[in-house]
Amino acid sequence: MAITLRKRTGASVTFEIITHPRRFPVKAIAVHTFGSPDGMGVIEPATPTPAVGEVLIQTDAIGVGGVDAVIRRGTVTGAGFGSGYTPGSEVAGMVTGVGDGVDQSWVGRRVWAFTGVGGGYAEQAIASVDNVVELPDGLPSVDAVALGSAAPVAHFALVHAHFIAGESVLVRGASGSIGIAAVELASRGGAGSIAVTTSSASRGELLRRFGATHVLDRDGNGDGPELFDVIIDVVAGAALPRFIERLAFNGRMVLVGVVAGYPPSDFGMTLLGAFQKSLTLSTFSLDTVPRVDRDRTRIELFDAAVRGDIHAVVQDVLPLDRAADAHRRMDDGTVFGRLVLRP
């Protein structure tokens, strides 16, 4: 049964859960052929059932992430990415059912959830209760999926880089949701300067509103510092060695994405060639952050968004059945912030 919320008026705010017949059939998106977005299509899967430790979520908003496009292109392969794979790793919506071992009080709560390496592009999604946080009042579902993964990745990537106030920062690939969050958080953290790479002057001007002080093109050309203490890189790809060369003495680069594909196999020679600069290049994944720290930080960032201290940047909201259009825009490189799907 689908669940809606009705707000009552009075001395206190309460919510009444009202059940209605569920719409049939349930819809989801599957990748039938990896490569072009044309290989994606609508399917009608069986209603999912939460297993032990899991919750069932009626989705209200679904984030379209860079990793979704990377997987759909076939860049990442593995047993879990066969024909019929449903993309999507983060959703926001209402918990409508729980598996064994999960407190029934989750039912009726509005939540953000990480669904794993897939399963999010659906009207109903399953997530481990360990990957679910309740949303604060005042944070729309659309904003939640723009921030829920991106902002914690940006936060912990800066921590991973041992960033301190006064240092120069370059955010490579700053027009996506992770990049925008990294710019805002570095600015809030007192960065001495924040350079960004982006594809157009208009995007650069938008990024200045979030704290960027210098705008470079995708190749790193422009009016800005030559060297940086910290580089947060969402892009990787063939140009990665050129940006390693932009690190200052004791500079740290943290790789948080590969939206342009993997770097050349010999990129490590650039590090060795700068041996005397004591450079560091590392990867970062939220999987390495303890759950308690991850959840606490995500909740703090959601609360900051409600206060207006950080911002969810959503370029467009599309119906679920237009997921392929969203991926075409991702491939075109025309997205600023996040695209969101709604059932």
Rank of each mutant, 00 (worst) to 15 (best):
T213W: 00
L301K: 04
R203T: 11
N221Q: 15
R296L: 13
S199C: 07
F275H: 13
I231F: 06
V230N: 01
G268N: 04
K277N: 13
S202W: 00
T283M: 02
E300M: 03
A274V: 00
A239F: 05
K277I: 04
A248G: 07
D217P: 06
R209W: 00
L279D: 09
G220F: 08
T288H: 10
I232K: 01
L247N: 01
N250I: 00
S282A: 15
Y262R: 09
E205D: 15
R298A: 03
E245D: 14
R294W: 06
L301S: 06
D303L: 14
I244S: 09
M269G: 01
V230G: 00
E300G: 06
D295H: 14
A304N: 06
R252K: 11
A260D: 15
L271C: 00
D287P: 03
L281Q: 02
G268R: 06
R208Y: 01
S278E: 06
V292R: 12
R208M: 04
V258S: 12
L240Q: 07
G273P: 03
F249E: 15
F228P: 04
F302D: 08
V259M: 14
R246S: 15
V259F: 03
L271K: 00
E245M: 05
F228C: 11
P263R: 04
L240N: 08
L227F: 10
G273A: 14
P263L: 07
D217I: 11
G204D: 05
R246D: 12
M269Q: 15
F275E: 12
I232A: 04
G273L: 10
S200E: 10
A260I: 07
P290R: 05
V289R: 04
M253D: 01
A239G: 10
G222F: 13
V254L: 10
F243H: 08
F243R: 05
L255S: 13
D223E: 14
G273Y: 01
G224M: 01
L272N: 11
R294V: 01
V230C: 00
S282Y: 02
V230R: 06
G273M: 12
S200Y: 07
D287C: 04
L247S: 08
Y262A: 13
D287N: 10
R291I: 11
D287K: 12
Q276W: 10
V289L: 05
L247R: 05
D233Y: 04
R298M: 03
G222H: 12
S199F: 10
A201H: 08
R242Q: 09
G261F: 06
F267R: 07
G211R: 03
R218D: 12
I299K: 14
G268E: 03
A236F: 01
G251S: 04
G273I: 09
L240R: 02
A260H: 14
D295Y: 01
L207V: 10
G222E: 12
S285C: 05
L286I: 09
A248K: 10
I244G: 12
S265L: 07
G222N: 11
V235S: 10
F267E: 09
P263T: 05
F275Q: 12
D266K: 01
V292K: 12
A248E: 11
D293S: 15
E226P: 04
L272R: 08
L286N: 09
R208L: 00
R298K: 13
G257W: 01
L240T: 06
H214Y: 06
G273W: 02
R298I: 00
V235P: 03
F228E: 09
G224N: 05
R246F: 07
I299N: 14
S278H: 08
I299W: 02
E226H: 13
